[in-house]
Amino acid sequence: MRTELVSEPGDPDRPNEDFASVGLPASGQGGSLVVLDGVTPPRSDYGCLHSVAWFSTRLGGALTELSVSRRDLTLPEILSRAIRRVADAHADTCDLSHPRTPQATVVLARWSAAEVEYLILSDSALLVESPTGDVTALLDDRLSRLPRTSLATDAVADATVRNKEDGFFTAAADPSVVSRAVTGTLPRTSVRALTALTDGATRWVEKFHEGDWAALFTLVRKEGTQALVNRVRALETADAQERVHLRRSKTHDDATAVFVEL
Rank of each mutant, 00 (worst) to 15 (best):
V106R: 15
W111N: 10
S21F: 12
G61L: 08
G60R: 02
S7R: 08
D13Q: 11
E129M: 11
Y118G: 07
R148H: 12
T202R: 01
A155S: 10
A159C: 03
A234W: 03
A193C: 15
D254E: 09
S80L: 07
R221N: 07
A193D: 00
H50V: 03
D37Y: 02
L139S: 00
E129Y: 08
A172V: 02
F259S: 04
G38Y: 11
T136L: 01
F168Y: 15
F208V: 05
S27A: 08
T57V: 07
Q241D: 12
R142P: 08
Q29V: 14
A114K: 15
V161N: 00
T189H: 14
A109S: 14
T57Q: 14
R142K: 10
E8R: 15
D72Q: 04
R145F: 04
A201P: 00
K250I: 02
V116S: 05
P9M: 00
R162A: 07
R84A: 11
P102R: 08
D154Y: 08
E210G: 00
E129F: 02
A173V: 05
L75S: 12
E206G: 00
P41L: 01
E115H: 15
P12V: 08
I120G: 14
A234L: 09
D239A: 02
A104E: 01
V68R: 08
N230I: 04
